[in-house]
Nucleic acid binder design. Structure first.
Lengths: 332, 332
DNA sequence: TTGAAAGCGATACCAT
DNA sequence: ATGGTATCGCTTTCAA
């Protein structure tokens, strides 16, 4: 421990002493309660300023137990889908007077772990995306209400907002088939080891039309990932005329990759994404997508957290669903 | 007060009683300390689970004062510029082991006020965008370290990260002039009553080339705002061949508006934005912009907060600057 | 108007 | 391995 400038915390006691009053008087002055002489109040305020006093939020929180904080955990704030979910959660939390601590886990299980370890002592509930096994999450959250988002088909131990894109993806495939496409590829999520649930829907959709499954390439969850994945796919399988992407950010990368390969969208290559982010309306051509209501998604998650927290009746699995629907724009 | 289901908080004491042990033993079991019999531990854990016990983060924080939280206040998380700044701040905070509470003030002074009122008792420092007068901020933060971002030329009472786009905007104008443009308009920020600092730079740039100032239209800070503003501008001033926008999101709206009016960018209308958001590379044509290093911006703000907080030597105004530089892509 | 004392809910240190 | 006691910094209640 370094010697010398050891700076102990300035407490209400120090201020009281400096101002020559009791701690309660300091508290009164600081919290603008009445019942205090103006000159005394000023003296206290001055002392507080001089000493650089700042009340401890813990001590205060301990006494007036009136604030609720929720931890929002997402893999990548810069992915516009997560941005939208975060914005929605923020809005829903604000409406309840809650505080939101945001953690960006950078798509890494390691960071998820680190986050969970520190989060438990900071929030009253956790909402978000986790790739960690439920058992592990449970162990680290120890009784904290947890609401998972998009946790595949079965979340056993925790509430989970399920994303149901089955019909939406089926509609997307149907649309492609109607438009004459027969060789349809997919750009799946690269992070997980197994194929994604969205891939399963994709396969189902193809099967429903008696189509053989097209090539599936893995893409990192960003524009560059989609770009290089589609290039790989088209190079190896030039006969492909349409691709379905795990999400919009990958699909947007595919738009770019297609252009670089001299394929015009949608004429030479149809592209359909998943998520329906606002950003999709800004690219050229506007992105067709199996769209989610992100606003509702965030609100739903926070709402469930609230129910879990206050002992209200939690929503069951059937209510915790966000359905996705095909939204056709220009790219398919 | 509603009668009946009054649910008092479950404390460590309750668990102790239920398990027939002392509070300290409960603490040991919960925190995985050693020195406890396995069966005892299990008994405690069971009791805790049954009672639905969750430790108070305040009580815990009070004892082990080891966590730092910073409040991040931004006007609109969905504006990609703020998304990038937020992501950068999150990253910088995580590197320090800090927690970040995010508040979206929805571009409203009212919400800023509300946020400031509740934030002071929740965080150790505040970083962000405020339109409120400094005196008001000061009153509500009472000694909390505050780092403002983009607070115009002079922030008197608080540290402020100044955004210096003078040279960048001048370069932008120079580029437009070299490309033959003489009638250059601007889409300014609508929220403030006075013209923005960016507008002043714009005017300076024109003056440097002996050009008369073109029309200035106000735009809401979103795509639709830029879209309708540019339509208004071009309708009233069809002779305009180039526009500079307050920021990229407005500029992207202008791109769309121009297209709707049958103007091809950059041939019939050159567009230059401000901020240099990643999103600018995804639109058609890619947006030219006076670009900021958002990553550095966020890191700088958090760094200064850290210095203020720990009594390190705070950075002076000359170091708290983010310079913007012209980044030419396709739209001009 | 001011002060003394009693918590708030946990952890740490020191006994046992 | 377990329990008693002090303590963290503040607000609230009650007396003076």
């Amino acid at each position: 421990m370094p010697s010398g400038t050891e700076s102990r915390r300035v407490t209400i006691h120090d201020v009281a002493r400096a101002a020559g009053v009791s701690r309660q008087t300091v508290s009164r002055a600081l919290n603008d309660k009445g019942e205090i002489d103006d000159s005394t109040k000023q003296r206290v305020l001055d002392a507080a300023l001089t000493l650089g006093y700042r009340p401890s939020r813990f001590a205060r929180g301990l006494v007036r137990q009136d604030t609720i904080s929720v931890g929002l955990v997402i893999p990548d704030l810069l992915n516009p889908f997560f941005t939208e979910v975060a914005a929605a959660a923020l809005e829903a939390a604000r409406a309840r007077g809650w505080h939101v601590l945001v953690y960006d886990t950078a798509d890494s299980a390691q960071e998820e772990l680190g986050t969970l370890q520190v989060i438990a002592s900071q929030v009253d509930a956790v909402v978000g995306y986790f790739s960690l096994p439920e058992a592990e999450i449970e162990q680290l959250t120890r009784g904290l209400p947890v609401v998972l988002i998009d946790r595949g088909e079965h979340a056993e131990r925790f509430s989970s907002i399920r994303i149901d894109g089955r019909d939406g993806v089926r509609a997307a495939i149907a649309h492609l088939v109607e438009s004459g496409h027969r060789r349809i590829g997919m750009l799946d999520h690269a992070a997980r080891t197994e194929p994604s649930v969205r891939h399963a829907w994709f396969a189902e959709g193809l099967a429903a039309h008696g189509l053989a499954e097209g090539p599936v390439y893995r893409a990192d969850q960003n524009v560059e990932g989609g770009e290089s994945a589609v290039e790989g796919l088209l190079t190896a399988h030039p006969e492909v005329t349409a691709v379905f992407a795990f999400n919009d950010i990958i699909a947007i990368g595919a738009l770019r990759g297609a252009r670089r390969m001299g394929r015009q969208v949608p004429r030479d290559l149809a592209v359909i994404g998943f998520d329906g982010v606002r950003l999709g309306t800004l690219v050229e051509p506007p992105l067709s997508s199996v769209a989610l209501d992100t606003r509702r998604l965030g609100a739903l998650a926070v709402d469930q957290a609230a129910r879990l927290l206050t002992g209200g009746t939690p929503l069951g699995p059937d209510d915790l669903v966000a359905r996705a629907e095909l939204r056709l724009r220009g790219s398919a």
